[in-house]
Computed example of a mutant assay.
Amino acid sequence: MARFTRGFDTEAAFEHLARRDRKLGVWMRRIGPIPPDPDWRGAFDPVDALARSILHQQLSGKAARSIEARVDAATGGRLHCDTLARLDDAQLRACGVSANKVLALRDLARREAAGEIPSLRQMATMEDAAIIAALVPTRGIGRWTVEMMLMFRLGRPDVLPVDDLGVRKGAQLLDRRDAMPTPRELAERGQRWGPYRSYAGFYLWRIVDAAAAAKGG
């Protein structure tokens, strides 16, 4: 059974991408190497991480952190089926959790209790597509949410979130297009970045930041 390590060689990724894509290489050298993410090595509970993703959806960072802190205080700081079961819907709503998010948290907890949410150990033997397929049936969990987990927590090297507006904007700036590429166009464009499409995505986000800073300056 194949086992997937968390994280990848960012130096090898830098050399590969700069060699395969001249335009991207120019931006990469301008921005500089992006180091490995320390979260790639840290232990985490996928259910807890997904629950927090649900809490943060469609909220400003400050508002989401405030609600998250109240839920943490009520559950003891770890979100999973047992701790969420301690709170009824009214108590979650009193923490500031919307009705739709309460339903999403309940569905997540139900699926965890039924063994439908893979553990971190199980994910170590699962392909990216299998992890996505296992998690997106959960209410409130879309493909983008799982892709962020794959990139930033599991350190998978070859994930390109083609629906992400920041990534699409970065690709538009990279290729000096009049409009952002469609997700399908970006997927095709990103074929040359494999097997390090995650690292390319990190740079596409940075390109947007760099362009905004240059414009502001």
Rank of each mutant, 00 (worst) to 15 (best):
Ala43Val: 08
Ala49Gln: 15
Asp158Leu: 01
Ala210Met: 13
Leu50Val: 13
Ala51Ser: 10
Arg184Leu: 07
Arg86Gln: 15
Trp27Leu: 02
Lys101Asp: 10
Ala104Cys: 15
Glu185Ile: 05
Leu105Val: 06
Val26Tyr: 04
Arg93Ala: 04
Asp9Asn: 15
Arg6His: 14
Ala85Val: 08
Ser198Ile: 05
Met149Gly: 15
Thr125Ser: 03
Val47Ser: 10
Ala113Thr: 10
Arg106Asn: 08
Glu11Tyr: 02
Ile141Thr: 10
Leu92Gln: 01
Leu165Ala: 13
Arg41Gly: 15
Lys62Asn: 09
Arg121Val: 14
Arg121His: 09
Arg30Leu: 12
Gly155Ser: 13
Pro181Tyr: 10
Asp39Leu: 12
Pro137Glu: 09
Ser60Asn: 02
Phe8Asp: 05
Lys101Met: 05
Arg177Leu: 15
Tyr199Leu: 07
Ala49His: 15
Ser53Glu: 14
Ala212Pro: 00
Pro33Tyr: 03
Pro36Arg: 11
Leu84Val: 14
Arg30Ile: 05
Thr138Gln: 12
Gln191Ala: 08
Asp163Phe: 00
Pro35Val: 07
Asp88Arg: 03
Leu173Glu: 15
Leu105Arg: 06
Gly155Arg: 11
Asp175Asn: 06
Met28His: 11
Asp48Ala: 00
Val208Gly: 04
Pro137Arg: 05
Ala114Pro: 13
Phe14Leu: 13
Val102Glu: 03
Ala114Trp: 05
Glu112Phe: 01
Met148Trp: 07
Arg156Cys: 05
Gln91Asn: 02
Leu17Gly: 01
Met1Ala: 09
Ala63Glu: 05
Asn100Arg: 13
Gly7Asp: 07
Leu92Asn: 00
Ile207Tyr: 07
Lys101Leu: 08
Val136Cys: 03
Arg30Pro: 00
Met180Ile: 09
Asp48Met: 01
Gly142Phe: 05
Gln58Tyr: 03
Pro161Ile: 02
Asp48His: 15
Leu79Arg: 12
Arg29Pro: 04
Arg93Leu: 02
Phe4Leu: 06
Lys215Thr: 13
Ala129Cys: 05
Glu185Val: 07
Asp21Gly: 11
Ala51Trp: 03
Leu173Met: 15
Leu186Gln: 03
Leu120Tyr: 09
Glu11Val: 04
Leu50Arg: 14
Gly140Lys: 02
Leu135Gln: 12
Lys169Gly: 00
Ala133His: 09
Arg156His: 09
Arg93Met: 04
Tyr203Pro: 07
Pro181His: 06
Gly194Trp: 01
Gly155Glu: 14
Thr125Asp: 02
Tyr203Val: 04
Ala213Val: 07
Gly76Ala: 06
Ala211Arg: 13
Gly42Asn: 14
Leu154Met: 15
Pro157Leu: 01
Arg20Met: 07
Ile132Met: 11
Phe8Asn: 03
Met126Trp: 12
Leu108Pro: 07
Arg189Gln: 15
Met1Asn: 10
Val159Pro: 03
Arg184Ile: 04
Pro161Glu: 04
Ala43Thr: 10
Glu116Ser: 10
Val146Gly: 08
Glu116Tyr: 06
Gln122Ser: 01
Arg153Tyr: 13
Lys62Met: 04
Ala114Lys: 10
Gly77Glu: 11
Ala124Glu: 09
Ala99Gly: 03
Phe44Pro: 11
Tyr199Val: 09
Arg30Gly: 03
Pro35Met: 10
Gly32Ile: 02
Ser66His: 00
Glu112Val: 01
Ala85Pro: 12
Arg110Asn: 06
Gly96Thr: 04
Ile131Ser: 14
Trp193Leu: 00
Leu204Ser: 08
Lys101Cys: 10
